[in-house]
């Protein structure tokens, strides 16, 4: 599904502010696989998503999606196959437009925008059904301006929008971080269901060790732009947050845990 070969990204190269955000990173995600990514702040997790989605271009290396070389293709083209929830809740939806209008935009996914006005009934009812399952009451507010919603509510909508057009790959960047614990649980279980029902490949960044252990098939730990370790198979099945934190610590300097991670 997704293959990264020795991908590097350096910001502000040659200046005192140089940051080597990704260093010769290689990664393979199988069809239908669910991968969780953990790592301290600034480890390069979001940059990994940016380079896959095309928001940032790789300085070197090669990226393949579904057998196709996408290393230099523009972001909007890659987006036909990639659904995305950003770390910043503001990026996934458009303020000034209503929830329904945002849905119309998401429904264009994968084709050209035209002069059509309303989304198909089937798409709208699917969308409403997913909103109902999040139990945030958003299904009653379809004509509300998105700017009036909280960050968590916007993330919840973005998740549904990102899966509406059935992408091949779903990239979730701490998409429950802005939600309260109850809502986070709803959204996580919806994430799992959506991934299974649509047979999506999912990569999910999280700071919650619990989520990293509960969800998916494989855990990846990133540090300073590299993949530090992976846990899969049997070891992954029996993994507990305590184990993860221990592995984290054993890395020594450079990998520091925030309080948020220890508490999670």
């Amino acid at each position: 599904m997704l293959r990264l070969d020795n991908v590097s990204v350096t910001f502000n190269a040659g200046t005192p502010n140089e940051v080597r955000a990704l260093q010769n990173l290689s990664l393979f995600v199988e069809d239908g696989e669910f991968v969780t990514v953990i790592g301290s702040n600034g480890a390069g997790k979001s940059t990994l998503f940016n380079v896959v989605s095309g928001a940032v271009h790789a300085d070197s290396g090669r990226i393949e999606l579904d057998g196709e070389d996408i290393t230099i293709s523009p972001e909007y083209q890659r987006s036909h196959d990639i659904g995305r929830v950003f770390q910043d809740p503001r990026l996934g939806t458009c303020p000034g437009l209503t929830i329904r209008e945002n849905l119309s935009l998401a429904a264009i996914h994968g084709r050209r925008a035209g002069f059509r006005r309303d989304v198909k009934k089937a798409e709208e009812s699917w969308f409403i059904e997913q909103l109902e399952r999040q139990r945030l009451g958003l299904e009653h507010r379809l004509d509300a301006d998105v700017a009036l919603l909280s960050g968590g509510q916007r993330q919840a909508i973005t998740l549904v929008m990102a899966t509406l057009a059935k992408p091949k790959l779903l990239l979730l960047d701490e998409h429950t971080a802005a939600l309260d614990p109850n809502a986070a649980e709803q959204v996580i279980s919806l994430t799992q269901e959506l991934a299974e029902a649509n047979d999506l490949s999912v990569v999910m960044i999280t700071h919650s060790m619990q989520q990293a252990c509960d969800l998916g098939d494989r855990v990846i730990m990133m540090n300073q732009g590299k993949i530090e370790f992976e846990i899969s198979g049997e070891e992954r099945e029996n993994l507990t947050p305590a184990d993860l934190i221990e592995r984290f610590h054993s890395l020594g300097s450079g990998a520091e845990l925030s309080d948020r991670q220890l508490l999670a």
Binding site: Y76, R84, G92, C94, P95, L105, G110, A162
Partner: peptide, 14 residues
């Protein structure tokens, strides 16, 4: 949407 959030427009495949 382009005027308000062009990142989202690109992520929508436009």
């Amino acid at each position: 949407a382009t005027g308000k959030n062009d990142q989202m427009v690109r992520a929508t495949g436009l």
